[in-house]
Structure formats: structure tokens, C-alpha cells
Amino acid sequence: MTDLLTLDLDRDAEGFLQQPEQWNREIGIAIARECGIAEMTARHWQVCEFMRNTYLANGAAPSIRTLGKESGVTVKELYQLFPKGPAKLAAKIGGIPKPHGCI
């Protein structure tokens, strides 16, 4: 199991990775566990990867509206997967900086 403390990761005060290239899936799983998500299912990954790929392609994380429309996971399911806030958690687990949009 990846121990985040033994890695030299650049994270902000809330735990968001500041350098997406430091990320790998093992780190994602460890961050998810920190956030109270014990098991990352294929659906969780679908959201986190969409989040990450959109950020890497556009330099900005998608809004919750875009997540619901384009990630292949509906808004309802997004909140079931990530009850503490889908956009924020998927960004954290996907290894990208904290999203700044209000929507």
C-alpha cells in the first residue's frame, strides 16, 4: 500500500497535488483512502480520470455541470460516489490542483 508520507509530493494545505505529473494510480488510491473512500470502483476512476484528463487538456477542471454531462456518470451518481463533493474529491484523487470555479 502506498504511504503518502514517505513520498516527496508537492501538496497544498488541503492535500491537492500541485504537480499532476507526480501522480499515479497508487497515489490516487491512497488519497481516496485519506478522504474516506475505502474502495475506488471503476465508476470512481471514470470520474477521476475525466477530471484529470480535462485538466491536462484544458488547464482547468470541468464544472459539476460538465462532469454530469460528459463524464458518463450522472450528477446523482456523482454525489453517491463522492458524497463530500464530487468535483473537489475527484480532482484531489485524480492528482490535479483544487478546482477554482463556483459551479
Binding site: 459539476i64 455541470r65 460538465t66 454530469g68 450522472t74 446523482k76 454525489y79
Partner: peptide
Amino acid sequence: KLDIPPIPEFLELLSDSG
């Protein structure tokens, strides 16, 4: 442009968000 939905869609989004 900011991805803020029109009111009817926004209400759906809110309801789906719980």
C-alpha cells in the same frame, strides 16, 4: 460561458445533487 445552466436545468442539477 461560465457553465452556469439556465434556471430550469439549474434546479434539476440542484435536485440531482441532493
